[in-house]
Design a protein around this nucleic acid. Structure first.
Length: 489
RNA sequence: GGCGCGGUGGGAGAGUGGCUAUCCAGCAGCCUGCAAAGCUGUGGACGCCGGUUCGAAUCCGGCCCGCGCCUCCA
């Protein structure tokens, strides 16, 4: 099995062939840091994180670049509203984004360039485009001249005629052609700006990605990713700028775009107000549950987001954690899981394979003490599993889940049985109770008292103790091996 | 209007021309002081109409519906 990806550039599923197998290079459009990230921002971060992890298993070196857009008119507007300096707003939102993504087990890319640190490169790129006749300065602006490039529109599968027909904004007088788009625009005294050959100004939206991709990955690299809504105009314009600036060299060989998160059939977006911020969701659900919910839908499909979906994801992880326990060791990634991922990142299929592995985990003890034959006979295992030396299914499950960034904790961590060291309490009324509950020793002591009561057939007292703990969010489970507990949530 | 995506059982969600997807929920049992967890079994689907085929949810044609992009947006 070779990695296959659906390439937006061709509209087809293609075998992935890197330019240089010794170093795979990927660029993903990152967030504009002006607000808290929402679940729709998290989706590409998680999707391309899975791709990044997968590429790392296949190639010795992967260079993953994801930018921060920290110069943008939305940022300017927000900073004005809040009355804070722009740099402070972008610094704060960048940190929040990184913190939220980290809770989703999103690995840090190798390079996370900020647009404002690359203005010189953008200016150089713009000068090149002016020099070779693809851009022109007018009235303090610099514009890319769309008719100068015959292939414009091909990437997004739009003819320039259609684009003309669809143009309904009034055309700025300094534009030579209605489709021309801004590379550089003037800034007034109150707006962030940089000195340039065209006066003090700031970059247009698309040029930063062209400049940063070139700097860190070269004129042509392997994979360019982002959300579907970026195909036009953002990526089309990136392609135009980069190709024209680099003597016709293609920008990226494979374009990968994730689908939207939708709520009740409609696209989740700030303008509709139907979005969930990561901040709110993470207060209610573990990051891994959110990550699993995002990966249960194939990345190119629209993802219908609901809290019920999150609750289901949480339950799945509860069960899996019960199976893998506190043993963090893993095996090789099971072949069926790896194959699903290599098939255009089919994470829902990979997850269904994990369910099958989880089933086999039970059979290990139940059917015939670890012989894989029983599992095979019951149809729970593939023939491939049968010929492989049988190792612990718990480790196989952990390996499988780890490959997409799940099941990274110990069971006792997941269920909150370990002492929390990060708890900061300020409410003086509740603080005693919280302190008591936070210490697992107190809970275990109470469980022992309950079990004594149970032995004495005093079920009334036993149930009282269980109810008492339940009010603190502690769930007890009497199993064959004794009583275990976990924190609900 | 142009371009693109999608319509699968109560819900979520994969997929191959013929072989149980998977998970949740449901139902019937087992286990259990009770509960939870776990285990076993089980019903239920492929938007509509044609066509190709021995056989199509899967291929082709038409239709209906939903969504997205074309303007800042992951």
């Amino acid at each position: 099995m070779v990695l296959h990806l659906h390439n937006t550039g061709s509209g087809r599923r293609e075998a992935f062939r890197p330019i240089d197998p010794a170093q795979v290079r990927m660029y993903v459009c990152g967030p504009t840091v002006y607000d808290h990230p929402h679940i729709g921002n998290a989706r590409p971060a998680v999707v391309f994180d899975v791709l990044y992890r997968l590429l790392k298993t296949l190639y010795p070196k992967v260079t993953y670049v994801r930018n921060f857009t920290d110069v943008d008119d939305k940022i300017n507007a927000r900073a004005r509203e809040e009355g804070v300096p722009i740099a402070e707003l972008t610094r704060r939102m960048t940190q929040i984004y990184l913190d939220d993504m980290s809770q989703l087990n999103v690995l840090r890319p190798d390079v996370e360039p900020r647009a404002t640190a690359h203005v010189a490169e953008m200016i150089a790129l713009i000068e090149r485009l002016i020099g070779n006749g693809h851009a022109y300065a007018a009235d303090g602006h610099v514009l890319f001249h769309v008719p100068s490039w015959a292939d414009y529109g091909r990437f997004a599968r739009r003819s320039t005629d259609e684009l003309m027909a669809g143009a309904r904004v009034e055309v700025a007088p300094y534009k030579r052609d209605a489709m021309d788009f801004v590379l550089w625009k003037p800034s007034d005294a109150k707006t962030p700006g940089w000195d340039s050959p065209w006066g003090r100004g700031r970059p247009g939206w698309h040029i930063e990605c062209s400049a940063m991709a070139k700097q860190y990955l070269g004129a042509t690299f392997d994979i360019h990713g982002g959300g579907q809504d970026l195909i036009f105009p953002h990526h089309q314009n990136e392609v135009a700028q980069s190709v024209c600036a680099h003597d016709g060299a293609p920008l990226a060989n494979y374009w990968v775009h994730n689908g939207f998160v939708i709520v009740e059939g409609e696209k989740m977006s700030k303008s509709l107000g139907n979005f969930f911020t990561m901040h709110d969701l993470l207060a209610e659900f573990p990051g891994e549950a959110i990550r699993l919910a995002l990966l249960q839908t194939h990345y190119r499909q629209p993802l219908d987001f609901t809290k019920e979906g999150l609750r289901q994801a949480k339950r799945i992880l509860d069960r899996w954690y019960r199976l893998v326990g506190d043993d963090l060791r893993t095996d090789d990634v099971p072949s069926e899981v790896q194959a699903a991922l290599e098939d255009d990142l089919n994470t829902p299929k990979a997850i269904s394979e994990m369910h099958k592995i989880a089933d086999a985990r039970h059979l290990e003890g139940i059917v015939n003490h670890g012989s894989p034959l029983g599992g095979y006979m019951l149809g729970r295992m593939s023939k491939q599993d049968l010929v492989k030396p049988m190792t612990s299914p718990g480790r196989r499950l952990r390996a499988a889940a780890n490959s997409i960034g799940l099941l990274t904790l110990r069971e006792s961590q997941w269920f909150g049985r370990e002492q929390s060291d990060s708890l900061v309490l300020t409410d003086s009324v509740a603080i005693e109770v919280f302190r008591w509950v936070e210490d697992p020793r107190n809970i275990e002591k109470r469980i022992n008292e309950r079990n004594e009561a149970r032995r004495a057939q005093n079920f009334k007292l036993a149930d009282e103790i269980r109810d008492e703990l339940a009010t603190y969010g502690i769930v007890l489970e009497d199993g064959p091996k004794g009583t275990t507990w976990r924190r609900a949530g």
